[in-house]
Design a protein around this nucleic acid. Structure first.
Lengths: 115, 115
DNA sequence: ACCACACGTGAGCATCTATTGACACGTGTT
DNA sequence: AACACGTGTCAATAGATGCTCACGTGTGGT
């Protein structure tokens, strides 16, 4: 039933700050810890560092060293994808004719909730 | 930066039992609390009930009453989709030419992890 | 009315986890 | 060598969350 390794993925994705970090990395591609911390701002650098560790161990981001910096970037083939696949599978099983591509349009919807 | 309402979605998805419940609902379509609890088995009925509450409030599942039962089913247009879109967006931003449809193939991959 | 069944809820415990400040290490600079 | 900068790590604290038991409510059956 476990689609793949989404366990590690969702565990990592359960935190807002981490999600924020991922979003930032998704936009900028590759950043140093300080640069990331600057954009997150809700928490200190130490916290960001700790979160990056979780994200790395979970296979969501990659680390590359350059001088005295550590550049982080999204691991697009890692756990993020596992989580993606998990959701995709669930959605597919639920309604077979779901057009996944239309999900992109839903981006603008905003959200109904607790309907 | 917040793609949509993925916050509530990922908060709900952060728990294994809840993910399990969603998977079960994805397969069977509509089940009563006891039926769900029977398939989860790692926790008691009460716990399942509590989780269903979280899933419902978060907009991941729907509830329908029938006699003295409460049938739950996946809300395919709710938060599950928001989470899906969030991941999709991140993946798209990271690598523009990513072929999302191939993710389905990744289902069989299994997983590398903590490289 | 009475009893069984299906659930939801609240209190109490046990755990986990996020956050931060202090400190250590490696690299680049002068 | 001495020093500044960028990060990771550790320990302690505070807050969040899951699990279960006991109990309350609503529905069906006899």
């Amino acid at each position: 039933m476990e689609t793949s390794n989404e366990n590690a993925a969702f565990d990592a994705l359960s935190d807002r700050v981490r999600r924020r970090i991922l979003a930032v990395l998704g936009e900028h591609g590759e950043l140093s810890v300080n640069e990331i911390a600057a954009q997150v701002s809700s928490v200190g650098r130490t916290t960001v560092s700790t979160h990056l560790r979780v994200l790395r161990i979970s296979g969501l981001v990659r680390e590359r060293r350059e001088g005295r910096n550590r550049l982080y970037s999204l691991d697009t083939e890692g756990a993020v994808r596992d989580a993606f696949v998990y959701l995709q599978t669930i959605l597919h099983r639920a309604v077979d004719d779901i057009d996944v591509s239309t999900a992109e349009g839903a981006t603008r919807e905003g959200g109904r909730r607790t309907g």
